[in-house]
């Protein structure tokens, strides 16, 4: 009974916060709502006897992603206003699609025989660690290369200017600006 209540609370929180993420008018709010969703998911992981993943979720994922997102929001805003707009449009077709996807998913779930009760949990975090560095060692190594590449690339891309290039002189920039204006009109 208690797990049902817990599930209900987690599910409610998850869905509500997720809905706010996609409907909130203020981008900063959206990010914060996403933070709540991720934290609640960690709670769900605890219910599913995955404490290690839950801690990873909070420490790395929630912390990392939310911080990054906030940085992104701040770096790309135009005005000084704190209320950064997060608009939606063409919600109609999006709603239909997501409802249809949900329906399809639910239909498939109902058609598939799934276990009613979870077996007693026996695993431990140590086992999990062995699993990661055992058969999945190679994937782990490849992942490290990926992270390295992503980091290097992201830094280069987000860097302010190409450091090797000369910034064009003011005159050239004005000319270019004028040209692009001409092109537009």
């Amino acid at each position: 009974m208690i797990d049902r209540i817990a599930f209900g609370v987690v599910a409610l929180l998850l869905l509500l916060s997720a809905l706010r993420v996609v409907t909130s008018k203020n981008l900063v709010h959206s990010v914060l709502w996403l933070g709540l969703t991720l934290v609640t998911t960690a709670g769900a992981y605890l219910l599913l006897s995955a404490p290690f993943i839950a801690s990873i979720q909070i420490l790395l994922y929630t912390g990392g992603v939310i911080t990054l997102m906030l940085f992104g929001v701040m770096l790309t805003r135009r005005g000084e206003d704190i209320a950064i707009p997060n608009e939606s449009s063409e919600g109609g077709r999006a709603l239909i699609l997501s409802l249809a996807t949900f329906g399809l998913f639910t239909g498939a779930v109902l058609k598939t025989p799934l276990p009613q009760e979870a077996p007693p949990f026996t695993g431990s975090t140590a086992e999990l660690g062995r699993e990661i560095l055992g058969p999945n060692l190679m994937a782990f190594e490849v992942l490290s290369v990926l992270l390295l590449a992503a980091m290097v690339g992201a830094i280069v891309i987000a860097r302010r200017r190409d450091p090797g290039s000369q910034r064009p002189s003011l005159g050239l920039r004005i000319e270019a600006e004028a040209k692009s204006q001409e092109g537009k009109s």
Binding site: A18, N86, S88, E90, G91, L97, F105
Partner: peptide, 19 residues
């Protein structure tokens, strides 16, 4: 599935890249 669908709604309706 519900969470996924909500995300899908956001992906297809948000105008901003960060959204």
């Amino acid at each position: 599935a519900a969470l996924f669908s909500i995300g899908l709604y956001g992906v297809t309706s948000r105008r901003g890249a960060i959204g």
